[in-house]
């Protein structure tokens, strides 16, 4: 029986081999372009990125509205910026589960993830200087239906975290510089 999770693992393995000897081609820059709309609403567009030594373009431009909910006295024209982190984490870990499953010959039938970030907003409001601005913790719960044992599914999820860009970006410090042009 052929396993098909829709991931072209061979292409990824080939890329790994090629890039081992060509680290400069492995350098990517992801870009977003944001414009203030009004209030705490902004719009961010993403279309171009750099990688494999050249400018690259997504098939189409994607537009993301970020705002805050009405309980924040805002217009709720889009999700809260910190919720975009949950989108990134869920998307990255799920992609990892599918890729690792393909590589290990495991057929997936369904993969659902519930992602919750606990956030004490006294930090961002400046109400308590001992409270941090970001998440206190993040919990991801996967429900996976696949032709595999419980241990194999747990190993898929563990390996997905081990190779996840967003998991790494959230769990490890990153040097972030913000400047005025």
């Amino acid at each position: 029986m052929t396993i098909d999770n829709g991931v072209n693992v061979q292409a990824l393995l080939d890329a790994r081999d090629v890039l081992k000897g060509a680290p400069e081609a492995a350098q990517f820059t992801w870009r977003a372009q944001s414009t203030w709309s009004n209030g705490v609403h902004s719009q961010t567009r993403i279309q171009n990125f750099f990688g494999l030594g050249a400018e690259q373009t997504h098939k189409s431009e994607a537009v993301f509205d970020a705002d805050h909910p009405e309980v924040f006295a805002a217009q709720d024209n889009g999700i809260t910026p910190i919720e975009y982190l949950l989108v990134g984490l869920a998307g990255c870990l799920t992609a990892g589960v599918a890729s690792v499953a393909q590589n290990r010959g495991i057929q997936l039938r369904s993969v659902e993830a519930t992602v919750e970030g606990n956030h004490d907003i006294r930090g961002i409001l400046g109400a308590d200087s001992d409270v941090r601005n970001g998440f206190n913790d993040v919990r991801v719960t996967f429900t996976i239906d696949a032709d595999a044992s419980k241990e194999e599914i747990e190993a898929l999820v563990a390996q997905s975290q081990k190779r996840s860009a967003v998991f790494d970006a959230l769990t490890n410090p990153t040097d972030v510089s913000v400047t005025v042009a």
């Binding site: 747990e154 563990a158 975290q161 081990k162 998991f167 790494d168 959230l170 490890n172």
Partner: peptide, 9 residues
């Protein structure tokens, strides 16, 4: 913050 996963692995 990835301690749990290195335990799980």
């Amino acid at each position: 913050g990835g301690l749990r996963n290195v335990f799980a692995l």
